[in-house]
């Protein structure tokens, strides 16, 4: 299921951002949206973070929100080898980010199902550091797809 959303052009393997806000901005920038929609999305993502960090611990975060400015569910992946302080529950820097955004109405509940699948994937990724070694976005997508399928078995 995640393979429908995982796209090499939506994978940033060397995030330049060094702060929480800049990470969100860099991930949102990947989406093909006009600037004002990106700005709205950023405001909403920051509000979501304000109610509780999406940094799940073990170096992984899943910033997510519903927003009027998107018509479909979108997934962007960002990786930072250095790690970024993201107020994660374990207080440790985050190396891997899954940005998930969805419209307010989502009849197929794709968003929540996807969130659940990413959370499962994150638990598996938390046991390894292999994702820090891959240098090609296409390979990265293949790696995550393989892991997700293993997870589903």
């Amino acid at each position: 299921m995640l393979d429908q959303l995982l796209k090499p052009e939506r994978v940033v393997l060397d995030l330049k951002a060094r702060t929480k806000e800049d990470v969100l901005k860099e991930l949102v920038d990947v989406l093909d949206l006009p600037e004002d929609k990106k700005e709205i999305l950023l405001v909403t993502l920051k509000k979501r973070e304000a109610i509780g960090s999406t940094g799940m611990g073990k170096g992984i975060a899943i910033p997510h929100t519903r927003s009027l400015v998107v018509e479909d569910v979108h997934l962007v992946i960002g990786r930072s080898r250095e790690g970024v302080e993201f107020d994660a529950i374990d207080g440790k820097p985050v190396h891997l980010f899954f940005l998930l955004v969805a419209p307010p109405q989502d009849p197929g509940t794709t968003y929540l199902l996807t969130l659940g699948r990413i959370a499962n994937l994150a638990r598996k990724l938390a046991r390894t550091r292999d994702y820090l070694e891959i240098d090609d976005p296409g390979e990265f997508v293949a790696y995550l797809t393989r892991l997700e399928q293993e997870e589903a078995q």
Binding site: T44, I51, G52, M56, T65, R66, P104
Partner: peptide, 29 residues
């Protein structure tokens, strides 16, 4: 308008947060 949209989006998240499947991942008070 940005603030109104942020409020409306937050209310959509509020509906998600009521769901057990969401709360099992992110238990937001």
């Amino acid at each position: 308008p940005f603030l109104l949209m942020a409020l409306q989006d937050l209310e959509a998240t509020e509906e998600d947060v009521k769901r057990e499947d969401y709360r099992s991942i992110f238990p937001v008070p």
